[in-house]
């Protein structure tokens, strides 16, 4: 992925990329098939969560970065935090939530390459994501904020993301948005509306595959002018 948002900045410009969203463990079915309606051999846990993967890659590329999230007081949470910390992500804004388990995603590949998911996100530690003081401290030094559409799974989190977006823009920063839509997410209340809002707010738009088509329909219907100055359509994988 090209760092197009860095085009107008010099090499000496201090940069800090921050994202917010779910941290989960991913547990994969070892065999291909459809769904989880039968006992399966499973492999994992693997540290995961779309925004966590994103920010981990930023760190591996040498970028100053941090993440706002929440995990449980469990091994799944420790696994994720240790991975991110090891790779250079600022994890100070990742809350360890009492009485909640770290989120999880069970995934199984179909023969055609598509995937079926069973998520535990909305009622996991992920539901505790918000702009606590550590998060606000991290946001104050953000020059770029990345929004992952999959993270917009509840109104309180949409509220936190929107507040963060406005804060970073007020600081002169930029916003990128990857819809990262999964079919299992389309029935989440407020998500469609939140995706539209983020499309209006972002400077860089990074749709993939079917989410690119969904976004194009949204733009035609809303007759949006190019609020998003850069579209980067990526191949699905």
């Amino acid at each position: 992925m090209a760092s197009s948002f860095l085009m107008d900045q010099t090499a000496d410009t201090p940069r800090c990329i921050v994202t917010i969203g779910e941290i989960v463990v991913e547990i994969m079915a070892e065999t291909q098939g459809v769904g989880f309606l039968e006992p399966l051999a499973l492999r994992g846990p693997y540290p995961s969560g779309a925004p966590a993967i994103f920010i981990d890659q930023v760190a591996k590329l040498g970028g100053d970065c941090g993440m706002i999230s929440a995990v449980g007081h469990d091994d799944f949470g420790t696994l994720n935090i240790e991975r991110l910390k090891r790779d250079g992500v600022d994890v100070s804004a990742i809350l360890r939530a009492d009485s909640y388990s770290t989120g999880s995603a069970f995934v199984r590949y179909r023969p055609d390459g598509s995937r079926d998911f069973v998520y535990n996100i909305r009622h996991s530690a992920c539901a505790q994501i918000g702009l606590h003081e550590a998060a606000r401290t991290l946001l104050k030094r953000a020059t770029h904020f990345h929004v992952m559409g999959s993270s917009l799974f509840s109104f309180p989190i949409i509220d936190a993301v929107t507040t963060a977006v406005h804060q970073v823009k007020a600081q002169g920063g930029t916003i990128s948005f990857d819809p990262n839509i999964r079919k299992e997410m389309l029935d989440i209340p407020d998500m469609r509306a939140a995706l539209e809002l983020m499309l209006q707010e972002c400077d860089i738009f990074l749709p993939v595959g079917q989410s690119c088509c969904c976004s194009a329909r949204v733009r035609r219907r809303k007759r949006l002018s190019a609020k998003s100055s850069i579209w980067v359509c990526r191949k699905s994988y």
């Binding site: 109104f155 509220d159 929107t162 029935d187 209340p189 469609r192 509306a193 939140a194 539209e196 809002l197």
Partner: peptide
């Protein structure tokens, strides 16, 4: 399912 973006924006406001 859910609300439109104008309603969401108003609730956030």
């Amino acid at each position: 399912m859910g609300v439109n973006s104008a309603t969401l924006k108003r609730r956030l406001g």
